[in-house]
């Protein structure tokens, strides 16, 4: 696009981000501070993910953007249009055809392959933030591997509700070292982080932090022996493709409370219905 560098960010900035990414890959789950820039979209709308995507995107790469698992939600449409405009890259909705997938709140149902990169948009990268609001304190807690408070929080949930009451952004321990926020994906998606074939990058623009889960890395969701981690399940099947194993969105279909359940991953659903060429 006239007047702007390929993929919007200038090369110096991209290099700075790539360096930070290398560090992040070298220390799985560790939050690397980076000199986040303003993007022409609001903070909180995926600026972290966009900076990472802009830094790793090559001219031949094929990009997919999803929000809530869907390619056609307005913000996914807007981010995809942005990269079409500033990078002129080819885009796709097919998970298997993408080199880079930027996502908000979901991991695609189709298993990712070696060589693919999943870029997560992260609002609050610090998993300990809602237990300890001070950044100074939480960085120290990570350094000392002082994660007792997180287990106490999960235990308090069990004591109060009989269940761990965290349903999304469910904390994980990466490579046996850092407690990490997987971004607000449903805990349903947590098992997909474990030993993934694809590289997973996480970008928090407003908080100016990035981190990574490299391929084939151990990722455990925190739990207790007598309260093992479990994921959401539905009695229903997808009303469109019949899937009994994907994350389902509940859709209200009329004003008397009728509802149906459909796959949140629109590409996966279309694929199962044989509607993708």
């Amino acid at each position: 696009m006239n007047g702007y560098n390929f993929a919007y960010l200038d090369e110096q900035t991209k290099r700075m981000i790539r360096r930070a990414l290398l560090k992040a890959v070298a220390i799985p789950g560790y939050q690397v501070p980076f000199g986040g820039r303003e993007m022409p979209m609001p903070y909180g709308w995926g600026t972290g993910g966009m900076q990472l995507t802009a830094s790793i995107l090559g001219a031949d790469d094929v990009l997919k953007v999803i929000d809530q698992g869907a390619d056609d939600t307005t913000n996914a449409v807007s981010i995809r249009a942005f990269f079409e405009r500033v990078a002129g890259v080819e885009t796709t909705t097919a998970t298997a055809a993408a080199d880079v997938i930027q996502t908000r709140h979901r991991i695609p149902e189709t298993p990712l392959e070696p060589g693919q990169i999943l870029v997560f948009q992260v609002p609050i990268p610090e998993p300990l933030r809602f237990i300890e609001p001070s950044e100074q304190e939480t960085r120290l807690m990570h350094a000392l591997e002082e994660y007792g408070v997180m287990h106490v929080k999960l235990y308090e949930d069990i004591a109060r509700y009989g269940h761990i009451a965290t349903t999304y952004a469910y904390p994980v321990k990466v490579d046996g070292r850092y407690v990490t926020d997987p971004s607000p994906i449903p805990k349903f998606d947590n098992p997909k982080l474990h030993m993934s074939d694809a590289l997973m990058l996480f970008g928090a623009g407003r908080e100016k932090r990035l981190y990574a889960i490299p391929p084939h890395t151990r990722v455990e969701s925190l739990d207790f022996e007598d309260h093992p981690f479990e994921i959401q399940a539905w009695d229903e099947h997808c009303a469109l493709c019949g899937s009994d194993h994907s994350f389902l969105d509940e859709v209200i279909t009329d004003d008397v409370g009728s509802r149906m359940f459909v796959c949140s991953d629109t590409d996966y659903c279309l694929l199962r219905r044989g509607e993708v060429a």
Binding site: P42, Y43, G44, W45, T47, D67, Q68, G69, T73, T74, N75, R104, H105, R106, P123, T167, Y168, A169, P184, I185, P186, K187, F188, R206, Q232, W234, F247, L248, D249, E250, S264
Partner: peptide
């Protein structure tokens, strides 16, 4: 930015909380 991002879809997380 962060306040206004509440306008973005949160279907998935909301569904998880509903469940």
């Amino acid at each position: 930015g962060f306040v206004s991002h509440l306008k973005l879809p949160h279907y998935v997380d909301f569904q998880s909380e509903l469940e």
